[in-house]
Computed example of a mutant assay.
Amino acid sequence: MNNRPLTPKEQKVVNEFEAARPGTGAIAENNIRHNDKTGWADIIADTPENEIKVSEGTGSNSFIYKRLG
């Protein structure tokens, strides 16, 4: 596992997931640290920081859900 410190944007993603649903911050961190399989760190690096936030929306199935972005 990659034990490097998370970048400020990566830490913000972890914090936003945790705020949206407690327990999911650890899952997000795991996905960031396994970037070679998930691509999360690359996606986060390419995402403007002001777009990293919890928001609500609807999907095609009309259910309301929380998401990042």
Rank of each mutant, 00 (worst) to 15 (best):
A28H: 00
D36T: 06
T38N: 03
E10Q: 02
T38Q: 01
A41S: 12
K12H: 14
A20W: 15
N30L: 10
D36I: 04
F17T: 01
A28W: 00
D42A: 15
K37C: 15
W40F: 13
A20C: 12
A41V: 08
N31R: 05
E18G: 03
W40H: 06
N31K: 11
P22E: 15
T24E: 10
A26S: 10
G25I: 02
N30S: 13
A28E: 00
A28L: 02
V14E: 00
R33I: 09
G23Y: 12
I32R: 00
T24W: 11
K12M: 12
F17H: 08
I27A: 12
K12F: 09
A41N: 03
F17Y: 09
W40N: 03
E29S: 15
K9N: 13
I43H: 04
K12Y: 06
N35H: 04
G23T: 04
I27T: 10
N35T: 09
G25D: 05
I32A: 03
I27F: 14
A20P: 05
I43D: 03
I43L: 15
N15V: 06
G39T: 08
E10M: 00
I27R: 05
R33V: 12
A41R: 02
Q11S: 11
I27D: 07
E16A: 12
N31F: 08
A26L: 11
W40D: 01
H34L: 13
G39W: 01
F17G: 01
N30V: 05
K9E: 07
E16M: 10
A28M: 05
G25S: 13
A28V: 01
A28T: 02
A20N: 07
